[in-house]
Structures are given as C-alpha cells and as structure tokens.
Design a protein around this nucleic acid. Sequence first.
DNA 1: CTTGACAGTGAACAAGTTTTCATAGAACAT
DNA 2: ATGTTCTATGAAAACTTGTTCACTGTCAAG
Lengths: 220, 220
Amino acid sequence: MEELTKKQAAILEYMKGHVAEHSYWPSIRDIQAKFRFASTNAVFGHLQALERKGVLQRIPGAARAYKVAPVSLVEDLSETIIRYEGPDEDAIQLGSIPFVGSIAAGFPDYTESSGVVDSLQAPISAGSRRRPPQSFALRVRGDSMIDADIHDGDTVIIEPGHPKHGDIVAALIDGQTTLKRLVKQGSKTFLKAENANYPDLVAVTELVIQGIAKSVVKAI
Amino acid sequence: MEELTKKQAAILEYMKGHVAEHSYWPSIRDIQAKFRFASTNAVFGHLQALERKGVLQRIPGAARAYKVAPVSLVEDLSETIIRYEGPDEDAIQLGSIPFVGSIAAGFPDYTESSGVVDSLQAPISAGSRRRPPQSFALRVRGDSMIDADIHDGDTVIIEPGHPKHGDIVAALIDGQTTLKRLVKQGSKTFLKAENANYPDLVAVTELVIQGIAKSVVKAI
DNA sequence: CTTGACAGTGAACAAGTTTTCATAGAACAT
DNA sequence: ATGTTCTATGAAAACTTGTTCACTGTCAAG
C-alpha cells in the first residue's frame, strides 16, 4: 500500500468525520470549501489518488457516494491490540458491516436498532435481532496469540458471557483491549498470552473481561 | 408522532438498509427504481411525509443526504436493558453518532478506525482518536436506576475500566447488559439496583463489568 | 356528497455534482 | 538538465439529482 500524502490523509479524515457528524458524505465542493481550494479539481485529484491507493472507493457519477476500504494502520501499540471491525452473530455474516467515520460534533442520529461508531481500538458488542447474545467482531493486531493460531489481521468473533478456564477472552488491560487465554488456578484467575515469547501470566485484578472468543475468521 | 404508513415505513427501511449496505444514501431515483414508481415524485412525496412525521431529516438540495431521527421502539425487555446508541468520549459530544441501518448483506466496508454496527441490545465500546479510553453510550431502558436519577430513555456514557465501590457500571447479567451500582463489602462484590422496588443485591460472579457510567444525557 | 389526506403519473426545470480539458509551479529523484 | 509526481488553478461540459407544476384516482371522515 502506498503511503498517503499529508493532504490526502487530511481529506480522507475530513470525509470520515463528515460522515460521522452528518451521516452522509461531503460533496467535492464541501471538501473544496473546507480546504480552501480554488478549484474542485484539486479535490478531484486527491480523491483519485485515494482511490488509486486503495483506501477509498468512489461510485462513479454518484453524488456523495463513497466507500472506504479496509485500511491497515500502523500504530505504536504493544502486544495484541484488538480493534473493532464489525459485529456479527456469525463469522459467515461478518461481511455486513458498513463503514463509519470518526467521532465528531453534531446531533445524535441513531435508531433503536442500529448505530455507527468510531472504534479505533475498542471492542464493540452488537446483537442481532434474532439472537440475544451480543456478539461482536474484533480485528487482531499483534502476535500474542500465535500459539493459538490467531494471527495479526485475523478477525475474532467475541460473545459476552462468563468465561471458563481455558477460554480465550477479550480483556481490558491497561486501558486497551487484548486477547488472552483465561487461566484459573484455584481461586485465582490469570490471563495468558499464547506466545512463547511473551510473559506468561497476567493477574486479573477483577471485572475486566469483555467477552469470549467464539470463532476466528482468518485474514485473507 | 404520527404513524408511518406501510409504504413510508418500507421506504425508510430501504433507505437505512441501503446505508448499512453501501455506506451512502440512495438517491430518489434509486428508491423509485426499488419500488417501481413511475415517477420520482411518488418518492418525493413519501420523503416529505417521513420528514413531516419527524423520522427523517432531509438536507434540502443536497444529494443523497439525510439524517434519521431517534426512534423509540417498545420491546418486551425486563429490567434495565441497555441499548447501544452511539459512542463518545464525552456527553457533550454525544451528538456525533451517525445513523446506521440494520445489518444487511454485502461486503464489509470498514476502516481501522471505524465501523457500523447493528446493536439492538448490546453495548459498544468505541474509542476516539484522541483519547484512548474507549467510551461508549448506552440508552437506558427500564427503571432500575431511578433512585440514581437515571430514567428510561436516558443515555449513559460508559467508559471501560476498573470500577470502584460506588461506581455505576454496565454489567452483564443473564446475558443482558444492565446498569447497576457496584458495591463492595469486604472482599465480596455486589451489584445493586437503584430502585427501592428492586431486589437489593446481586452477587457478582466475576468478570462481568463492561464499563463505568461517567455521565448521563437526559432524555428529551 | 364534499372535503381532505394519501398515493401516484408524467414532464420539465433548476440546481447540485462529478468529470474532463488545458495549463503550470514546486519538489525530488535520475 | 529532465522527467515524474504532487499539487493546484480556471473554466466548462456532462451528468445526477432534488424540486416543482399540472393532473388523476382512491378512500375514509364529516
């Protein structure tokens, strides 16, 4: 993946923010005004670049119509950072998560049955209309679970619940969600990374598990 | 709120689904084609009706640009069912959650930093780009917290973390997320409903807290 | 039987929007 | 020096889209 230029990144960010704030995409002219371009064509070029670089999909001819492609961002996060990607009740249906931009100011737009969120590094649990369990999907970052055959880029389906010994869980550690195996020893509970190179056990202070990994969708 | 006619509801549903599937709104002509209207004006009329009834907000002149208004659905859920509505890092910014329809078939469109979910009765934690804490918002259903001045319809901002004694937390009980106050007695931990009519304490088995309520946005 | 809300056709207009064409400076690697 | 990429201007073409106007029909309430 080619790198985005500063302006390209800024424009993409603005577009996502616009969606988050207004729930619809900005027009080329909106972007032009925001960045004080004298010509719409300046924006046009950037959009083409964004599409060429694979981070944005335009719908030719259609107004205010875009999609964003999966983007891999490199960030200085240690261990297995789990990022939200989309919800589901089943790995097979994982494909149904539409995009959403970043959080921005504005008036809340939501319905009882749905919502859009920015979720940079957080788990999201979401229920389907059919199944009560509020399963959700996480994208795995890092290699702390490679011994469990869960690799960077994989997507894990998490379901809230009370974990048993041996379950792989999404837990909150140091403010970040990580994927670990739950280990009970007597009355004590620990979390264990499934990577021989990682420190063995992390003591569970309490009440930090957000869900249990039920299945894994391997990265393509 | 006036009732929606069958066609109006169908059109609104289609629009939401279109957003969920494609991440952008349909044009009037898209809707026209979907419902086999011979005239765009048939759609136009319905959209006007939807706006008049307060469930849809149009942006005059702008293409493929709409917002949806909050909708209250009544469902047979006991106790304080918490529903995801939108994320935020702050109550003041709560307004920034864009709409999303129900889950629909299609290819996943997401970025590393965002996602759209169907979230009928689940909590979603979401982070902003700025602040690591992955706060999220929940809509309160039921009256188990009325003594804490949290009422049905209110929106609570939840932030993942390790709760202290006295914190109001979003906890998973019987597979559903509920809002309760955390009470510690010696080495034991309980959850307590803030309603004199409700049973006093619920023992915390372990690892069920999903976040701490930081602020409340009162229902209008 | 009339009135009004609801639903729709058909055509046309006006505005919004994307897209193309022609042109050019700055930064940078070859 | 020279080509390439990125960035940008300015104008216009072409298409998309929301909006309006005129007219018809249904159905229930008054």
